[in-house]
Simulated scan of single mutants.
Amino acid sequence: MTEDAFTAHRPLLFTIAYEMLGSAADAEDVLQESYLRWSAVDPATVGHPRAYLVRTVTRQALNHLRALKARREEYVGMWLPEPIRTAPGVSEDAVLAESVSMAMMLVLETLNPTERAVFVLHEVFGYTHGEIAASIGKSEVAVRQTAHRARRHVHARRRRYEPVSQVTGEIVQRFLAAAATGDIQSLMDLLAPDVVVLSDGGGKATAARRPVTGRTEVARFVLGAYRTSAATARVEPATYNGMAAARFMTDGGLDWLVAFEVRDGRITGMYGVRNPDKLHHADAVRTLDRGGAQPWKP
């Protein structure tokens, strides 16, 4: 019975941990620690298993996040979240899809651990301030203040989100075809003027150390990447973090993973992950769940 309750809520618990940590590997560690705590509890003493598990995962994730903050300050080059492969159906829940998008995950990274926990639990999962207060060991008044501060911070930095669609996938495929043939004009036509490329090699693989911005510079960067590494790779379409993505496969396995942000028919952002530590589990399709939370209004 104990295991059944944990298994039943596992997608929700993973989603909470991942959104708080930006790392699937660390989220899995949190779930493992939480399961060990749960398995030591007498189920008869727990009136609401889901609430109990959410509190446990939240507290464990907060502990991990505080430790991760220090390590990420020493990260080599740009840091991006560990990408997770999501089923195409995740886009049916616009709130969930946006909340795990690369752009939003990077905004969440600018919050302090408590702000991030409060924002994620309240705005994404719909928990009340009182429920959150019980989860993180703060007063309800403090949680309300934190929620207001975090919401204002996120809204000032969030990018307009457009859910992945068939049209999005077609734009990405046209872009990849133009890159493969060296058609710079077609590339330029598919890029927004303020397009940004972020690359994460973690000091373990070649990647740009700084953002590449602007249509011309991005087109040159993409063509250069194809000449040096991508030209011999097999490209597979996929969906990661609720975004259209491309997997660049070589004989050694997954070499690059690029998620595309598309708005109004143009590519506005590309998020390239090449750090091998973040690609070990990139094949697994993750089931995400908000636990029946109601959509929130931006």
Rank of each mutant, 00 (worst) to 15 (best):
A208N: 11
R50T: 09
R247E: 13
T213N: 11
S91C: 07
R247C: 05
V273I: 12
R72K: 12
A40P: 02
A293S: 15
A133P: 02
P43H: 06
T181D: 12
A40H: 12
D264P: 04
D42L: 10
T114K: 06
V100A: 04
V154Y: 05
V100R: 01
A67P: 03
N63W: 13
G182L: 01
Y161M: 04
A177C: 02
F260H: 13
R116P: 02
S23C: 06
E131T: 07
Q185P: 01
A238R: 07
A25E: 14
F125H: 15
A40V: 01
R116H: 01
L13H: 05
Y240E: 06
A150G: 08
R263I: 09
A219H: 07
L53F: 04
R215Y: 00
M188D: 10
D264N: 14
G182C: 05
L68V: 13
T7F: 12
R72M: 11
M20C: 06
A192M: 03
E92N: 10
R159T: 11
A117H: 10
L111F: 01
V41M: 15
E131C: 02
A244F: 00
D183T: 00
A40D: 15
V273E: 03
N112C: 05
R85Q: 14
P295Q: 06
P49E: 08
Y18S: 10
A207K: 08
V57R: 11
T168Q: 05
D93T: 04
P298M: 03
L13F: 03
A150E: 06
V124D: 03
S165A: 13
M270W: 00
R274F: 08
G292S: 08
A230C: 07
G202I: 07
A142D: 12
A5V: 06
L13E: 04
F119R: 01
